[in-house]
Design a protein around this nucleic acid. Structure first.
Lengths: 213, 213
DNA sequence: AGCGTTATTGGTCGCTTGGCCAATGGCCTA
DNA sequence: TAGGCCATTGGCCAAGCGACCAATAACGCT
């Protein structure tokens, strides 16, 4: 028995897959709350009350943890963004409402974070492109349904999908603006762009979005 | 006389204002070429072949140098972006061509860089907002002229200005994508959005832009 | 020409980072 | 129950960072 108790960190040993998932979740949490560059061996270890070396054990190259954490966070968020049922119009409106919701702000910051960071770390750029593609698949599915039903008269569904995401990312770029000044031109940009890109009569989608806010 | 020549760094003393400007220019260059986070005392000192301490002498707080360097780079670039004469339509087309030109890519990266970094450093956010306002003033001047001349039928010139910049920033967000896939929906987004936001008949601006590319 | 101001140097300090490694001890299996 | 595998620890290292400071030398002034 020790002379002094110290902070007897009773060493707990977990199944590798479980520990790895735990580390990944923690890193994803840091990415969302504090940013990708704050994912450090020590930061993750501190949150888990574990030695820094353990993180290195599961992720010998720290960069890999960052990339995987981003992918994990993006995947989790996508499930929420697109979880909707109803007509294509309703699903699109729901998507826009959620993407602009205050609760999505952390995720918006993370996307911006990844877009910039891929300048220095090509691996993040690869993961980013992959996540973008997954998002496009989800939105394209909605758009195609709307084209089939006649709700979205666009002649080029894929182009509309691309443009809606450009609009989302454009507005999202201001997410870190302290005094992001409130102006209707900002607020309705994504909705109006979607209407325009899909060839819908003006006001229809805006009303569907307003009903769900 | 020294026993060995060593790298006899003959100490040159310059007028404070000149040295300060030199440091600022160098930092702005690093910001454009390598990113704002690469502006370090040592990196700037190396480029200028001076001691790191000298940079601290002129910028006791390194953060201030970063903020001022961003402002300097943005200001310099703005002069090029908006340097045009002719009809409002011609000036707008010229602006779009330049903003999407390959030579503006470094600046686009810098804006993205600053948007993300303002998450951690409020001072950058303040400088960013100020630069955005200056850009809006420039573009608004063109738009107002076009509204007066009847070329831009929009009822809300300011909203159009805001939306054009959202489009620019939206497309600019992909600047670090390694394999930014080429698609007409990307290429013409800013042009088409400007047409739409300004209430112009489709195709007019696109042609004006095409003529200048 | 001599002197004072201060631009400039070059080094140190404390801090944080990722990577590395020997030692420890928990859990599973034979 | 004994033994071995390996998850886990904790400390060390080198590199890079901003900040700080005493010493030095270039320049302007009288």
């Amino acid at each position: 028995m020790d002379a002094m108790m110290s902070t007897a960190a009773t060493r707990t040993r977990k199944r590798p897959e479980q520990r790895r998932a735990e580390i990944l979740d923690t890193a994803a949490g840091i990415a969302l709350e504090e940013g990708l560059e704050r994912i450090t061996l020590r930061a993750v270890a501190d949150r888990l009350n574990v030695a820094p070396g353990l993180i290195s054990h599961y992720f010998p190259v720290a960069d890999d943890l960052v990339v995987e954490a981003f992918a994990a966070a993006a995947t989790a968020e996508r499930a929420q963004l697109f979880a909707a049922s109803g007509t294509p119009m309703e699903r699109l409106a729901q998507f826009i409402v959620r993407v602009e919701d205050a609760r999505s702000r952390d995720m918006t910051r993370l996307w911006l974070n990844a877009r910039h960071l891929s300048r220095f770390r090509p691996a993040i750029g690869v993961a980013l492109a992959a996540q973008e593609e997954l998002d496009r698949v989800q939105l394209s599915e909605i758009i195609d349904a709307g084209v089939a039903s006649g709700d979205f008269p666009t002649a080029d569904p894929f182009a509309a999908c691309v443009r809606i995401f450009i609009a989302v990312d454009g507005v999202g770029g201001y997410v870190n603006d302290a005094a992001s000044f409130e102006h209707p031109a900002y607020e309705h940009f994504v909705t109006d762009t979607a209407e325009w890109a899909l060839g819908m009569p003006p006001g229809v989608l805006r009303q569907a979005v307003a009903e769900r806010r």
